[in-house]
Design a protein around this nucleic acid. Structure first.
Lengths: 252, 252
DNA sequence: CTCTCCGTTCACCAGGGTCGAAAGAGATAA
DNA sequence: TTATCTCTTTCGACCCTGGTGAACGGAGAG
């Protein structure tokens, strides 16, 4: 904190511009300059650099992120062993249960979506690939936290705190530890509208040699999940799915 | 060509480093420096900048691309109307035919994969999202080219030429034009090992108001496609799939 | 027509990016 | 244990280069 290591201003400007383009879904130099309070010509040079290297596409003087980013993202995704093994299972879990499912890993202390599936195969999903959520407020995050070494949990809580996202979010370390203990015993974690109002989610960690490589989840509108028979069904399906994924690691 | 517009060296260095990390699948500062013939300390500062902004994850002094890229890629993917409408159909086409399927768009004169599906839902795919191929050598590319204005085709051929990828690749403009005319008449394009030895592929363009928004393809080992009954089956399935996608654009 | 806003270009100057050397930090071997 | 190697990380200084504002040409709008 005291003295940040040296960084390159020009690069950070470019990154800010990329993020602005992501947010705006494509824009011209002037618009980005206004958005970021930078000079028009500066932004123009940056856009030009990105474009010349194939990272942007230009149409009618408006720039937007090119599929080069899709390529990079896809490479990152496929670099996870968990993705190759988990994706088919998570897809099938979605069709089997008729609910939305996710494959999540921990990155930099946050739960990051590796893959999302939907019963209809549609792309209208709650959490899309690369999206990040605080771990203490999601079923997927808690499932992973429950099997992480205590020091890691300490670090993560220290870094990100326990911010409240809804009135149901766990906000004290004691309550969190209790919950994690329960999760370790039952093998399943729940998110009772703790991250998003009206969204319920259940999850189970993918454990290989005791390490949580990630977690799988099933989620849907809170009211559809209240039936306890239905819940048992979902938990069973989830448990079996995770079991299948874990077996794929045993038979490397 | 004569005078390239101004670009920013520092940013291009960072982009080169990102590409190196993509290629190497993660590396330390020294390795990247060696790879790119840059000074260790320069690379270190760049890595540090990317890391401080969340674009890299560090483990054991080795840096690799973070899921931030997955997020960006996912955003790009979802920015295509064709993705939202085409993905479920392409997925179903894969399970229906038992073959691998792709959803492709044109970007910067190259065929770019927007989505890839596999009968087994596995991730072992010929062409993965963001991957780019010359248009003249692929069924998907030719399907799009056939419905692009002639000037666009001229531009693309001027820019990229007609490089030979296998001994079956079309390498003359005359042969290409003939092929495109045939495709316009039949509505289906074929790739007879023109891009990859041993790989056969058939494709059909997604036309909305006469514009080729992209194309859908079915592909597999050349020898499995030789049966003409099987081919007719695949062509029918492909045609129907494309038809479904196009209808989704009509009923916006 | 004028006015405005855009993308794009240019030349100047100072801030900053690059580089080499050297200091920590581990690992391995003797 | 010490020596040696390699890697990451730090530091200072030089010179380059990235930022800037003004200006040009064009496209729309009124």
């Amino acid at each position: 904190m005291a003295s940040e290591p040296k960084t390159i201003g020009a690069v950070e400007r470019t990154l800010a511009i990329v993020q602005a383009l992501e947010r705006l879904g494509g824009a011209g130099a002037s618009e980005v300059a206004r958005e970021l309070s930078l000079s028009k010509s500066t932004v123009y040079t940056h856009l030009n650099t990105l474009h010349a290297n194939g990272y942007l596409v230009k149409s009618d003087g408006s720039y937007s992120l090119s599929c080069r980013f899709l390529r990079l993202g896809s490479t990152v995704q496929q670099s996870f062993d968990l993705y190759g093994r988990g994706k088919p299972v998570v897809d099938e879990l979605a069709t089997e249960t008729g609910e939305r499912t996710n494959l999540v890993v921990e990155e930099a202390g946050r739960g990051t979506c590796l893959h999302a599936a939907d019963a209809t195969g549609s792309t209208d999903i709650y959490m899309s690939p690369g999206e990040r959520w605080p771990m203490h407020a999601t079923a997927t995050g808690k499932a992973i936290l429950a099997h992480l070494p205590v020091e890691r949990v300490d670090d993560i809580v220290d870094e990100h705190g326990l911010p409240s996202l809804t009135e149901h979010t766990i906000t004290t370390r004691e309550a969190l530890d209790d919950e994690l203990e329960t999760i370790r015993q039952t093998g399943v974690s729940f998110d009772e509208q703790e991250a998003v109002e009206g969204l319920r989610c259940l999850s189970s960690p993918v454990l290989v040699d005791g390490n949580p490589l990630g977690s799988v989840s099933v989620s849907g509108p809170a009211r559809q999940f209240t039936d306890s028979d239905r819940e048992r069904e979902l938990v069973d399906a989830l448990r079996e799915a995770v079991n299948v994924v874990q077996l794929k690691f045993v038979f490397s």
